[in-house]
Amino acid sequence: MSYISELRAVVGTRPLILPGAAAIVLNSDGHVLLLQRADTGGWGLPGGFMEPGESLEETVRREVMEEVGLELDGLTLMSVFSGADQYFRYPNGDQVFNVTTVYTAKARGWNFHLDPEEATTAQLFPVDDLPNDLIAPEVPILEHYVRIVKNLL
């Protein structure tokens, strides 16, 4: 049983505040890797919740490896996202307020090995052509990243 499953056994679907990490994984053209999530059907960044004893860097590296089978090169801290716009209600009713540390990174190779329990599809998108059906907590993260990119041009 996972850490979150153990918590859910005690609190049910009530909101939890959960730390996690996500990666904006970029290819050489600056396209962003997004996953179509198996649990919601929406698009999101690779990443997930921290396990006890893990650092945020370890979390993001583990999650990207588990979800898409990619090893990351160096991580660059982009920002930390929290607050009301990081609330999410999963289809099963579980509620969470994410505290997400987001890194930018490049992958070592692009051979995807999707975990079908995590994602149904992985795809690279230009930053000016992201899918409309992003999961809600990812919207402010990707908007922030797009603003950074546009300010660099």
Rank of each mutant, 00 (worst) to 15 (best):
L152P: 06
G20A: 05
E118Y: 04
Q86R: 03
F112S: 02
L7S: 06
E57I: 03
G41F: 10
A107V: 00
L152C: 13
W110Q: 08
L152I: 13
H144D: 13
H31E: 15
P126R: 13
D85V: 04
D133V: 03
P19S: 11
N98G: 09
R14M: 13
H31K: 12
E51V: 10
V25Q: 02
P137N: 02
V60M: 03
R108T: 12
Q123P: 06
E58K: 12
L114D: 04
P19G: 05
I135S: 12
L75W: 03
E71N: 14
G69D: 00
V102M: 00
A84T: 12
Y103V: 00
L34T: 01
R14F: 08
F97E: 07
L153C: 12
L75T: 04
L134R: 06
E54G: 08
V96K: 00
N132I: 11
D128A: 10
N92V: 08
G93S: 09
G44I: 01
R8N: 14
L26F: 10
G12W: 10
L16C: 09
V139F: 08
L152M: 13
M65S: 15
Y145C: 01
S2Y: 08
A23H: 00
F125E: 07
A136I: 05
G53K: 04
D128M: 09
V146M: 10
H113P: 02
V25M: 01
L134G: 09
A9V: 07
G44A: 08
T100V: 01
P52K: 07
E57L: 06
L18T: 09
V64L: 06
G44R: 00
R108E: 12
T13H: 13
P52C: 11
L130P: 09
A9M: 11
R14Q: 15
Y103W: 02
A136K: 09
P116G: 07
G41Q: 15
F88M: 07
G48M: 04
A9L: 10
R8E: 15
